[in-house]
Every structure is written in structure tokens, then in C-alpha cells.
Simulated scan of single mutants.
Amino acid sequence: MTEVIEKTALKFERIKPKVGARILNSKEELLSGELSQAIRELLEDAGVLVFPAINFTDEEQIAFTNSVGGNATELRGEQVFKISLDKDVNQEAVEYLKGSLFWHVDGTMNPMPIRGSVLSSKVLPTWGGNTEFANCYTAYDDLPQETKDRIENMRVIHSLWNSQLYHCPEPTLAQLEDWMGKGEDGTGERELPLVYKHPSGRKSLILGNTAERVVGLSSRESAKLLHGLREHAISEPYHYVHEWTLGDAVMWDNTGSLHRAMPYDPDCGRMLHRTIIKGESWG
């Protein structure tokens, strides 16, 4: 008699046609590894996956991240990064985290991209603190063909110091030199493709507050192009706001999405735990 083996199916509902899906499987099913390939495929399609009140422990979140692509270590070597403006928790990273209030892609200064990220809610803010996402796959898909042709091979200089100017527009020289000295080569800059080509063949846009200038364009034309593409990418068809409840986890495709935190009380103790998925190449 032939044994019938039933595989666990991924259960989800779409949040919007062009961004977001809500995963309905149990924690045990997610941690089994049986759904990993289906999750990766849905992530590339939806850009953002929500796991309502899944209540991952740090160990479970690391295991889940490993199952969907491999857990990469953070810049300081830790596997779980605590996102908080509490200086007792994150004294070295508070200024850096202020940049998260503006549209960005994580890890643009890294030698290898962050393929995706998982955030778990541990402490809710007293007010505000929702997280916004934009699907840059579907935003790219809907661009006019003439725009796609124009930007196909463009390269963009990304810099840490450019992102810091969003929340600190009048830095001291010492602050500026510190930001400029960050990064693998000590310049705080990296040249990346404007159009990111995924192994699957899909394309997305790499934008955000680290995007300083387009190589070969004047500062005027560069700003118009980058800001115009961002305005398109974050517009309603591609935009999702996640209102956190305790224990939620949200996973997003970092090379195919933009995200930002909405303002909140910096003294409220809001806490999210992040794990990141290994990427392959910036191209």
C-alpha cells in the first residue's frame, strides 16, 4: 500500500493587489521548513509578508530567517538587532536609526545586499510608530517603457552621510566627517544600479534616502529623477502601512521594497527585533 504524504500548503490572503500578503499558517508550520520556497516566491511577488501575532522568540526568528534564505549577521556581529531609540539599549545606533523615519533600503553601504528582513514587535509605542512599505517590483513594472529604457543601465551613488542629512540637515564638520568615514572603504559611499536585476529575472528600483546622485547626470536632473521615481514607487497602488500589534512579525524583500517608520515618541521604549536574510550581489 502506497503511503500518502500530504505537504503543508502556504495559506495567505492578499492585502492589496500590488503589495502585501497576510500569512495564515501556524508558527509550527512556518518553522518546519516545508513552506520556505513558497514563502520566498510570495515575498518576491507581494514585497511584504505579515505574520499576525506570531510571537517569535529570538531563537525562532533566527531559525525562520535561516529557513528562508540564511540569517546574515548584523554589522556588529549580532544575529538579532534591537531597533530602539532607547540609548540604554542602542547608544551607538540611535543617530543611525533616526534615518529610518525616511524612505530607505537597508544596507546600501554593505558589500553584499540584504536580501530581506524580518521585524518582530516586542514593545509597542505609546503613539505612532507604524511602518510603511512600498513594492518597488510592481512600481517598476508599471513605469512607461521609455522610462524603463532610459534608466535601465543607470548607476547611483549611495552614501550614509546623505541619509543623515534628512534628520540632521546642519551637521557640524566633525559629524559630517564621521558619516563620510563609515563604510567598507572609509568613504561612506557605494555605487549601485538604479534598476536591480533579480536572479528570477524580475526588476525593481533601488532608491531611498541614501541615494545621493545619478552617475553622469547633473545634480538638478539627478534629483528630479530620483525624487520622481520615489514619488511613483510610494504612491497608493504600491503602498502599505502596517499598524503593529504586539507579537506581529513582518518580512519584506529588501532589494524590492522601500520602507520607513512613521514618527513616534522617542522616549516610549518602542522595540522591534530584526533579523536579515543574506543577499548575493549588487550587480
Score class of each variant (00 low, 15 high):
7 K>H: 14
12 F>K: 12
14 R>H: 02
17 P>N: 01
20 G>V: 13
24 L>C: 00
24 L>A: 01
24 L>V: 05
31 L>W: 11
31 L>C: 01
33 G>E: 00
37 Q>Y: 09
46 A>L: 08
52 P>W: 03
56 F>W: 11
61 Q>A: 11
68 V>S: 08
68 V>K: 06
72 A>I: 01
79 Q>G: 11
80 V>C: 01
81 F>N: 15
83 I>S: 05
85 L>S: 05
85 L>E: 05
91 Q>W: 13
91 Q>C: 09
94 V>G: 08
97 L>P: 01
109 M>Q: 14
114 I>F: 03
115 R>W: 08
116 G>Q: 13
120 S>H: 13
121 S>G: 08
128 G>L: 10
135 N>T: 10
138 T>R: 15
142 D>S: 06
142 D>E: 12
147 T>F: 14
152 E>L: 00
153 N>P: 07
161 W>L: 07
161 W>T: 12
161 W>Q: 15
166 Y>I: 03
168 C>D: 14
172 T>V: 04
173 L>T: 15
177 E>P: 04
181 G>A: 06
184 E>K: 06
188 G>H: 02
190 R>Q: 11
195 V>T: 08
195 V>F: 03
198 H>A: 02
201 G>W: 04
203 K>T: 03
209 N>T: 01
210 T>W: 02
219 S>K: 08
226 L>C: 11
231 E>V: 04
233 A>N: 13
238 Y>R: 10
238 Y>A: 11
240 Y>K: 04
244 W>I: 10
245 T>H: 03
252 W>T: 04
257 S>D: 12
257 S>I: 06
266 P>E: 12
267 D>I: 05
275 T>P: 05
279 G>D: 12
